[in-house]
Amino acid sequence: MTVVASHTIPVIPRGVRLHADKVRSRWVLLAPERTIDLDPIGLAILQEVDGLRTFSQIVAGLAVKYEAPVDQISGDVGEFLAGLADRRIVELT
């Protein structure tokens, strides 16, 4: 799997968007032919992806917000974003 470097800027590309699925009371990521069910962690990560901040900045922000060690957050966020990047749902620039 792709490894996310600290200076990488993750981007949600055109054609992919967050959507509040009111009928099912959940958040989803809508992409070509894909609907990805987001748990609260996935949603929290994607809400930090603004196309400006680097991977390490996002991790640092989430670590503070969730009072969790940077190493653990970094692993979780890295795995999540790399999985989406392999499916071309997130771009790592």
Binding site: D21, V23, E33, T35
Partner: peptide, 11 residues
């Protein structure tokens, strides 16, 4: 389309 969205269609 509006009915579909209310019914739960996303795509």
């Amino acid at each position: 389309f509006a009915q579909a969205a209310r019914l739960g269609v996303l795509q």
